[in-house]
Design a protein around this nucleic acid. Structure first.
Lengths: 198, 198, 198, 198
DNA sequence: AATGAATGAGATTTCATTCAT
DNA sequence: TATGAATGAAATCTCATTCAT
């Protein structure tokens, strides 16, 4: 899943995007300099600005690339499933797993970009919206199909799902703690779908 | 609840902390410069370094101040209650409300500090741990008291709770969307405690 | 009169020259990048350096093209006239009109090239000298013919003429103000030839 | 007249402004780097941006300083004179002399700034407008007082005056040619006030 | 307790230009 | 005749931080 850039991109652009991905494994975005990126990519700093509006734009494009693959993967996983609850379970598990495998991606998404207003105008954020919309649609379908209680607020359920996933990843993303995604996603689903109260 | 610093602080220090709080209502921490802070506070940049080790230290101290109030508020709400489920519900509702009333606090906590490693050694983070521990204790007590199912993983439940709260706030913190905390917390509790599945 | 380059030029060269002309209608030379030029021309940046030594050379060649047309136009207007005063009046009026019709030309000549030393060794500047010499010759002839006062310094008169024309154009060139060339040139001639003093 | 900065400015600011003035005696603005300026001033590059919005702002402030002194000088020269023609003659002569003594100033004004749109929003340009207005007022008064012909267009006369002055300076500013300001201004006045035509 | 001046290190960005194909 | 990729050198600017007073 890592670093599969479109073939049509010029080699320099690919090198730069991969370089940033690589560097983000070690440092946070802010402490990575364009000089770092250029050196790692084996190109000149100037080239970065040929292909990207600025450093942030590079970040968003990298993010977008990751998200693209991620979204396709999710969709491919759920399309065969009939039950909506099952679909949501799969999404939870798969997302957790993707974040876990791809910590760079998770770190950017959960910690780096959310405080810069222009992220929310980027293509990357558009992908987030699509992903998020997918979940909402499944919830609504679940209610319609009688799998999910009618008195459940679809937006609230989505929030609980997304929040649970993200919070479960934080320890891993921040401290590098290992995460047993299968177990954790099972626990989460257990709570969300069956309720904690006796 | 807003920005009332300890009276024992020298006026300059208070002015500086309030200035940062004020500025964070509009901008993210990174795009606020020490010059901004000094201007807003009506003091000179140099003074900041009389009272704070560096810019981050200032942020943590501001966060800390907010946290103090937050923690007291939460505790005052819970203590009288008996049922553990009820206690958790109160925490969810109160936390949501606190975040909602004090967006700067929420913004700092949810978006700004988590990517700086030394936040996790700050006093502010100690308070987070206490808060987080409180929740876990209630959950465990709830299981012991037979209010919460035994097959529920306490850590997972805490994650779901915290994640739901945080995610519910994001729209407000980032986009300034209004949030009906009563309604949202009710929806969330409904899902978490009673489950989404029919 | 606008931007008709010699047909013998290869299409790419023509496109590039036209592109610069076009861009200079809105921006000053310095803020136009080779990337801008290439994009506007629909060619690649590299091609510019096939046809032009450097960016300045391109500017001079564009200027030269415009100048060619300008010079022909002026000459065609004067030759039949007899009186030297009349000739000078025609030059004033025609130059004003030329500048007015072709603002890019005026802008380049009056604002852009004069601070680059090597402009004064360019072909374009040779044409300026010819134009300027023409004026001086007419003045001298006018003195000889008794049309112009003997105590007038020919160089000073030329300076007044050229300066008046140029200054009259500035508003138009810089701010895009409309210019009534007939009226303005009449006013200027009135002052220069008949004097302002009662 | 050179380099008299306000005493209230911090030493660093004065050093920087003087440094730019000095450097402009040798190079044009564009080829002077902030590094040059800092070195010449004996300060760090960063300090430039403490006192000036950007490099251009520095230029405009320097220009403004020069213009301030210049304008005061002009006013002091003409206030005692009664005749308006005389006033205009003095302005022509004094301006020419000022430009001649202070080539840096003239060069900036006539060649450097006019193609940057934001110059026309600077304080420096405001001074130009005041200077220019002074001339227009005198012309109008001259007409009212019967010293200047009624059929003269005041704006055109101002254009002729300003244009003549500027064009007379060009040779000096560009090529460093010596200029006999007394003689040239006399010639110019002769033409403008008494007319070239026999 | 506070000011004001200055630093310095480096970050981002710009762009004309070259060259292999 | 033209492209496309990449360079490189420098230029502008940012800002947290220090220190003498």
């Amino acid at each position: 899943m890592e670093s599969e850039q479109k073939k049509s991109y010029p080699p320099g652009k690919i090198k730069i995007m991969n370089a940033l991905s690589e560097l983000m494994r070690e440092k946070d975005f802010h402490s990575i300099t364009t000089a770092d990126i250029a050196t790692t990519a084996g190109v000149t700093e100037g080239l970065i600005y040929k292909y990207f509006k600025d450093k942030k734009d590079l970040l968003y494009q990298v993010l977008n690339g990751h998200f693209q693959t991620f979204q396709n993967y999710i969709v491919s996983k759920i399309e065969t499933r009939k039950s909506n609850i099952e679909k949501l379970s799969i999404i939870i598990k798969t997302t957790l797993k993707s974040y876990s495998i791809n910590r760079v991606f998770a770190r950017i998404l959960l910690l780096e970009v959310r405080n810069s207003p222009n992220y929310f105008e980027s293509d990357a954020y558009d992908m987030v919206k699509i992903y998020s919309r997918t979940i909402l649609d499944i919830i609504n379908q679940g209610i319609k199909d009688g799998e999910i209680k009618e008195d459940i607020d679809p937006h609230a359920l989505r929030q609980v799902i997304l929040g649970s996933i993200e919070h479960a990843c934080l320890g891993e993303v921040i401290f590098g703690k290992e995460l047993d995604t299968d177990k954790v996603s099972e626990h989460i689903c257990n709570i969300i779908f069956r309720g904690a109260k006796k």
